[in-house]
Write a protein that binds this DNA or RNA. Structure first.
Lengths: 144, 144
DNA sequence: CGCTTGCTTTACGTTAACGTAAACGTGATC
DNA sequence: GATCACGTTTACGTTAACGTAAAGCAAGCG
């Protein structure tokens, strides 16, 4: 660990991915580590870039989409027209992410609901069981 | 439209997908329409199922994952052990969805930030431009 | 009757995102 | 000096989720 730079396997370990994956990202042009005697060396910036790509993946973005968003970070867009179109693309992205969050919340609510049903069913099951147990112990009375 | 049932192309139109996609879902066993003289007929329940699958897709779930969650809706799980394990799986799902939402929110924040930078840059650009225009009009004074 | 529209099945093609394997090059170490 | 651990390149394989094309049936219509 050359102080402030990382080897490929260090990053792979940290992110729980394979070195193949990282090389693949480079192959696709999503990251550009420098070489030190044939070996890849990653800067902290490279590291963050990979981290962001993985975050994008987790929310279902393709690699290309993730990178597209990440590259918005360093506008470099000098002229006003470019800046304006960038703002537009950001708006589109945000709209999509918002809908995605709505879908996500809906699914979370559904899960809560289903869990509620399960718990209720378990309750019933327990009630029945204890009733049966009582009945077996002294078969005489059945809810009054 | 046979009152309360749908043809394949009706659903395709409604959801903005192709008939091939719907047939593919059937091929994979994710939905089971009945046949009416060789033609597929979809019940409202089938429709909802497809809708939910598509919702899952939008948040980045695989078809199989979506279906797994959807199938939690009709537990049918009669015994307590099954119910308990279902609750467990729900908890896992929820945990993952929550992380996903965190990632999503982070990305939304980033987009807001970038948009702010863009707007600032645009402001500067406009300020420069109007300053230059003023200078061209009467080249004498430069901010006092 | 022939044509169009809508549906069917079968089957091969495609893209993304890697997995997996082979064959090789470096030090470091036993 | 052989064996690791770690890295490299090249290249073929794999899975999911469809796309696309071919060939054919059935109903309605001018």
């Amino acid at each position: 660990m050359s102080e402030g730079s990382y080897s490929i396997s260090e990053l792979a370990r940290e992110f729980g991915i394979t070195t193949r994956t990282i090389r693949f990202y480079e192959e696709k042009g999503y990251v550009h580590p420098r070489r030190q005697g044939g070996q890849r060396r990653y800067t902290p910036a490279d590291r963050v870039r990979i981290k962001l790509i993985l975050r994008g993946k987790r929310i279902g973005l393709s690699l290309a989409e993730s990178v597209e968003i990440i590259d918005m970070y360093e506008p470099g867009a000098s002229n006003a027209a470019q800046l304006a179109s960038l703002i537009e693309r950001i708006a589109e992205r945000r709209a999509r992410l918002l809908r995605q969050r709505a879908d996500l919340d809906a699914m979370l609510e559904s899960l809560d609901e289903v869990e509620g049903l399960c718990r209720d069913a378990l309750e019933d099951r327990r009630a029945e069981d204890s009733a049966r147990a009582a009945a077996t112990a002294s078969p005489a009375r059945r809810h009054a």
